[in-house]
């Protein structure tokens, strides 16, 4: 199955970049072959350009719910992103809407989409490193995601 692991984030906004950091680490561990691993500072429609043509997508991104501990990993499906239908408030396009739009206009969207959201502490302060709480948990975050994506 043609699989893409995609880490999303902003590398100069502290924990916001954690998805990219995890993807970079996964790339060095997974090596070439079964998985293709990429990372990017993109959102919404731009994500479509990256994921089109793959059969399985593993998306790694940050989230800030304020619940749970920084570094906790949550698994979501596309269906869990119910935000999609309430688009009309800001100028971003959320991932779920982008995927639905992509399907309608003929993009080949992966049949399997798994989303791993990493709880973060600070995604609004400029900085090239994650916060200490997230940084120290990075190895176990990578282990955890590695485990589930290899088992699936």
């Amino acid at each position: 199955m043609k699989t893409l692991v995609l880490g999303i984030g902003n590398p100069i906004l502290s924990d916001d970049g954690v998805g990219m950091r995890v993807a970079m680490e996964l790339k060095s561990r997974l090596g070439k072959g079964y998985f293709e691993v990429k990372w990017a500072s993109i959102e919404g429609l731009s994500t479509l350009d990256e994921i089109a043509g793959y059969e399985r997508l593993i998306l790694i991104d940050s989230i800030k719910t304020g619940k749970g501990k920084p570094g906790d990993v949550c698994k979501l499906s596309l269906r869990d992103l119910n935000f999609a239908s309430h688009l009309s408030s800001s100028h971003g396009v959320d991932f779920a809407t982008a995927v639905e739009l992509g399907k309608r206009v003929g993009y080949k969207i992966p049949e399997i989409i798994e989303i791993y959201a990493i709880e973060v502490e600070d995604n609004t302060t400029f900085g090239e490193c994650c916060t200490k709480k997230v940084e120290t948990r990075l190895p176990e975050i990578v282990d955890e995601i590695m485990e589930v994506i290899k088992c699936a």
Binding site: G44, D94, T124
Partner: peptide, 15 residues
């Protein structure tokens, strides 16, 4: 612009 440098889920700034 609603602090749109962040790329955290769900991919847009909630209101």
């Amino acid at each position: 612009c609603l602090a749109c440098a962040t790329h955290s889920l769900p991919g847009k700034m909630p209101l």
